[in-house]
Structures are given as structure tokens and as C-alpha cells.
């Protein structure tokens, strides 16, 4: 495990270090006739922590889901770590390999154990031998403080524990960029804070860039930068809108 991390880091430095982690250039998206992303342009630097604020339906989720192609955009450019997201499957593979995601509803795989959830990406995407992948997954489960649950199934865990597994699962894929779509939205405040502490501590360690959607004011305040969305546009925050970042 400890050998794996530095080598991954050095590979990072060797690759395009100057490219921003995320570059959105006048991205537009429609659902049918509804214009949900309007000329969205955003640059997120390497290792930056950016929070996206805005009311429900303002396009926050759609924007970050476009970054790993859970949704496809129709106009404009999305470049992740120097790789442009196109219809080419190879660019999609490269980007998904580099981008991890944490969902509001956890989305753990209920038919797999906690450990199997966390070894999926290392084994199948990074082609790691099983033993090594398990060691890596266990190290992340230890860091999210639930190694003793490794053999259990997601249905046996509480919400906070499930979200911690989801974070471990996303990080076990060794992403350079982590997207989080309201990771604390389904958790009570105290549990949410604990989960976020872990997320930030882990991110700190691996130097992962973080793009986060949240309604939680405390959480938003801990990021390097806040961007605001309204009606599918990125807007300059007035004080009223800044307050929208909190419930």
C-alpha cells in the first residue's frame, strides 16, 4: 500500500502538471427543450477544494455529473486533467479512471461485501492482483474507521457508515479528482460532519482535487473557493446567494 501511493503521486507529477484539474468552457446542456446548463465556464486547479452552491434545480448536479459523463453535454468543452471529454470511448475510460464520485444516496452495491465494494475498481479497472487490492481497500477502510465491517454487506450498516464506505470505495480507485454530490444530504448533521472530516483528511493526504455540492454552510466554509449556480449559470455571488449555500 505504502509503496503504491508515492509511485502514483510521482506519475502524476510527470504527467501534465500545469493542466487544470477541471476546465469547463461554455458548456451547454438541454433536457429536451429545457436549457439546464447555460454557457458554464469553470476552471478548478490541481488539489483545489471547490464547493458549488445554489438552489435546487439550478444545475449543480447536472454540471458535476457532466464531468464524468453520467450526463452528456451538448455544447462546449470539458477537459479533465488535460483529457478532453469526447464521444471517444478511450477518453471516457481515461477520465472515469481519474475521477471518483460520492453520491448523496451512497449507491453501494448491496450484493457485495464492504470489502468487495472497495476492491472492484482496483481489481477490474486498475488490474491490481486481488491480494494487493484487498490490502489497499483495507487501508482505506481503516482510515474511514470501519475496518471491522469489511465482511458485512451494505444493508447491515448505518447511513453514516455506508457513506464512509462510499468514500473509501471512491478513493480506492486512486482518483485525481473526487466529485461529491451532496455527500451529507442523507445524513444527520453530526454524522455528516464526521464524514466530511474524514473526506477532507483523506483528500489532504492523497492531494486529490475536490469538487463538492453541498447545502451545509460549515462544510462550504471549509473549501478553498465557492462557486454559485442559478438557473443553469455560474453567477457572481451576491450576499443573498452566498447565503443560499447554507440551508
Amino acid at each position: 500500500m505504502n509503496q503504491a501511493m508515492p509511485s502514483a503521486a510521482s506519475k502524476r507529477d510527470a504527467s501534465i502538471p500545469d493542466a487544470p484539474a477541471i476546465l469547463l468552457d461554455r458548456v451547454n446542456k438541454w433536457y429536451g427543450a429545457m436549457h439546464v446548463l447555460r454557457d458554464v465556464s469553470l476552471t478548478v486547479g490541481q488539489q483545489e477544494r471547490v464547493v458549488v452552491c445554489g438552489p435546487s434545480g439550478s444545475g449543480k448536479s447536472t454540471m458535476i455529473r457532466c464531468i464524468n459523463r453520467l450526463e452528456s453535454h451538448q455544447e462546449g468543452r470539458i477537459v479533465v486533467d488535460g483529457t478532453e471529454l469526447t464521444d471517444d470511448l478511450r477518453s471516457l475510460d481515461t477520465i472515469r479512471r481519474e475521477v471518483g464520485m460520492v453520491f448523496q444516496s451512497f449507491n453501494l452495491f448491496p450484493h457485495l461485501t464492504i470489502l468487495e465494494n472497495c476492491t472492484l475498481a482496483p481489481i477490474w479497472v486498475r488490474k491490481m492482483p486481488k491480494a494487493e487490492a484487498e490490502e489497499l481497500a483495507m487501508s482505506y477502510l481503516t482510515r474511514v474507521k470501519i475496518p471491522e465491517q469489511a465482511k458485512k454487506y451494505p444493508g447491515q450498516l448505518s447511513g453514516g457508515q455506508q457513506q464512509r464506505v462510499a468514500i473509501a470505495r471512491a478513493l480506492a480507485g486512486s482518483p485525481r479528482l473526487l466529485l461529491a454530490d451532496e455527500p451529507t444530504g442523507n445524513l444527520d448533521h453530526a454524522t455528516g460532519l464526521a464524514v466530511i472530516d474524514l473526506l477532507f483528511a483523506l483528500r489532504q493526504r492523497s492531494g486529490t482535487t475536490l469538487l463538492l455540492i453541498t447545502h451545509d454552510r460549515d462544510l462550504a466554509a471549509r473549501c478553498d473557493r465557492q462557486v454559485h449556480m442559478s438557473d443553469g449559470r455560474l453567477v457572481t455571488p451576491s450576499d443573498a446567494e452566498a447565503a443560499a449555500c447554507s440551508p
Partner: peptide
């Protein structure tokens, strides 16, 4: 099957057949 399952598999970078064989079918068939 909830859509989130396929999305989570996609987000991990699994290929179509990996996603189908490891995540979707085992749950759908059950």
C-alpha cells in the same frame, strides 16, 4: 434496479460488460 447502481459502476470506471456482469445482472436476476 435503481439507476444509482449503474451510475456508481460507471463512476468507478467499470466497462459496460464489467458493469453488467458484476453489478447489474446479479441484482436484477435475483
Amino acid at each position: 434496479l435503481p439507476k444509482g447502481q449503474a451510475e456508481a459502476a460507471d463512476a468507478l470506471g467499470l466497462s459496460y460488460w464489467q458493469k453488467t456482469g458484476l453489478i447489474i445482472l446479479p441484482q436484477a436476476l435475483k
